[in-house]
């Protein structure tokens, strides 16, 4: 990156962060929550981009890390009195790290679709365990809890409002982004990219490829768990639905829509996907009432979203951000 590029980059970064800081002050309550949610899903998608975009491994098991982050946070909030925000984050990270270590050990021996299928099956194992172990996890109903307060317990705390929660999430997502960006530019990140480009050659040069992949999966799982913790704190519950593999599928959709291998792309993708979902879920009832077509009222918004996704896989495989980058470079 040249000096001029760096300057443009940091200016853009500051502007976007500033906009996101101001946004909750001007947006109504619903959209404030919506924006916070985009950031959380964006963090999850970004964590998975480390594998998809940088290491060339498509994980279909990120729901396991995300869900375990949620349940870890729930455990800390429900078991430790008084509930402590930082302990919730710590427990959530520990839970997702443990799962990530387990998954990484087995799945990194495999490549391509085998990796994808193995991670999928693993997330499904955790789903079944959480779904059936009712005494501990609350089974199908999940666990609900009160939101912990922001601050240092015993010294100074304030309860979260939707605005401070947004800022808190924004801070964590921004820091995570900078950390992940640094990781991808570090020598470690370079090795990951060389694994993506040519695994056999990387091994021939003498890098222990398996170990690098394992660390990549664990790191990715850790950030996915962090997203899970944030989501649990925002919504005050943990439910098995979030361990189900459809969530992993959505994460992959975010990545493809936004552009893999860009870190920021997945956040854009998450915003695009959630925006489409929100838009279509309002559009069909509107059409139904305006044009008197009542059978359209219940039309599932996921059908047009799915079709747009398929079209993007075929015609825009580099994603929205990748496409913009290409355009700018011309």
């Amino acid at each position: 990156m040249t000096k001029r590029h760096a300057k443009i980059y940091w200016t853009g970064f500051t502007v976007i962060i500033a906009l996101l800081v101001i946004a909750p002050l001007v947006l109504p309550e619903f959209w404030r929550r919506f924006l916070t949610e985009i950031l959380i899903w964006g963090l999850l998608a970004m964590s998975s981009d480390l594998l998809i975009g940088y290491t060339g491994m498509v994980s279909f098991g990120h729901s396991a890390f995300f869900g375990l982050g949620m349940y870890g946070a729930a455990a800390a909030i429900l078991m430790v009195k008084p509930p402590n925000l930082w302990l919730a984050i710590l427990y959530g990270l520990a839970a997702s790290a443990a799962v990530a270590m387990f998954v990484a050990y087995f799945s990194t021996r495999l490549r391509d679709i085998y990796f994808a299928i193995t991670t999928l099956i693993f997330s499904q194992i955790f789903y079944v365990i959480i779904f059936t172990w009712t005494e501990v996890t609350g089974g199908e109903n999940g666990l609900s809890f009160a939101r912990p307060a922001l601050g240092i317990p015993g010294v100074y705390t304030v309860p979260f409002t939707s605005t401070t929660l947004h800022w808190f999430v924004l801070a964590i997502v921004a820091i995570s982004y900078l950390v992940l960006r640094r990781v991808t530019q570090s020598p470690f990140g370079m090795v990951l990219q060389s694994i993506r480009e040519n695994e056999a050659r990387t091994r021939a040069i003498g890098y222990p490829v398996e170990r690098y992949k394992m660390v990549a999966v664990m790191l990715s799982g850790l950030f996915a768990g962090l997203a899970g913790v944030l989501y649990a704190i925002q919504n005050r519950f943990a439910a098995p639905d979030f361990v189900y593999f459809l969530i992993s599928g959505e994460v992959v959709i975010f990545n493809v829509m936004g552009g893999i291998g860009t870190l920021l792309g997945p956040i854009v993708g998450a915003g695009f996907f959630l925006g489409l979902r929100e838009g279509f879920s309002r559009l069909f009832p509107w059409i139904a009432t305006t044009f008197d077509m009542p059978y359209l009222a219940e039309f599932p918004y996921l059908i047009p979203v799915g079709i747009i996704f398929i079209l993007m896989v075929i015609f825009l495989p580099q994603g929205l951000l990748g496409f913009m980058k290409q355009r700018l470079n011309q």
Partner: peptide, 24 residues
């Protein structure tokens, strides 16, 4: 001729569409 992973993505999209169609 593209990476087989693309086919997973496309068929995943198809499964979303078909499943929601059946639900509707």
């Amino acid at each position: 001729g593209r990476d087989p992973l693309n086919t997973i993505l496309a068929t995943f999209g198809l499964s979303l569409v078909l499943q929601n169609y059946a639900l509707w």
